[in-house]
Design a protein around this nucleic acid. Structure first.
Lengths: 128, 128
DNA sequence: TGTACACTGAACCACATGGTTCAGCAACAG
DNA sequence: CTGTTGCTGAACCATGTGGTTCAGTGTACA
């Protein structure tokens, strides 16, 4: 099962523009701390902290070769993140289906009880 | 274009087990603050704060009807999140393709320069 | 050997987050 | 009208986050 704490870390790691930028950058291939720091206009120490967050989250792996640290995209937390992402996709799609059907019928005013009976408790199990 | 700040909020909102639980719960249909607080074993005020975070992130919408507040899944930030999620999917898949090809050739030891030349700078544009 | 470079650890800072308690306030039930 | 219910705002607290500076440490290279 997916450890909730690891999911926390993965999503939290994504919740920062600088770190998303690092991931985007690493999508083009490995980079060193210095190379990552330059476009970000940030201290080496600052970037190192971000990379560390990404590494702990399992989204990036690093390796010190000589005096530089090579950073690249990691795969550890990939499956977990994917699973949850598609879980939420299904959640939202289901919600959208309900909404669409609902608004087709009621338009402006609304009744909160339109989807509370049939699919109840079937998605709960997927998180454990 | 997607506001980076809104993405920050969306991912940050997902980076908490309690809030993911709220989303899961709302996948079964609308709920009140009290109904959300019970399974979480948390104060109403505490839950209210989480719901507020989710609402600001656009993942949940709420509406005060009478003295209760109905909470349900929102759709505002859905498209943005989807776009970024699939962006990262592509990023990782591309990385995985590279890795797979790489490990097929090199197995244990590795050479950092295996993917740095061909696909450079082509995915950068999708973020704006 | 000496110097420049890439990085790191420690200390520090301001601010955000996740939670609480407590005192209300508005709405419903009787 | 009164009491209960559901929620809310304010104040507070501990901890985490995002960033800095500065003083190293280890590696590459002339």
């Amino acid at each position: 099962m997916v450890q909730q704490q690891e999911l926390d870390r993965a999503f939290a790691a994504l919740a920062d523009e600088t770190r998303r930028g690092i991931l985007t950058r690493l999508g083009d291939g490995p980079a060193t701390i210095t190379e990552l720091a330059m476009p970000a206009g940030m201290t080496l120490t600052g970037i190192r902290k971000h990379v560390d967050v990404l590494e702990v989250a399992g989204l990036v792996t690093t390796e010190k070769v000589g005096r530089v640290r090579q950073c690249r995209l990691g795969t550890e937390r990939l499956d977990d993140a994917m699973a949850w992402i598609s879980f939420y996709q299904r959640l939202w799609e289901r919600r959208l289906d309900g909404l669409e059907a609902y608004f087709t019928l009621h338009d402006g005013t609304h009744d909160p009880n339109h989807e509370e009976h049939d699919t109840k408790h079937e998605t709960k199990g997927t998180e454990s």
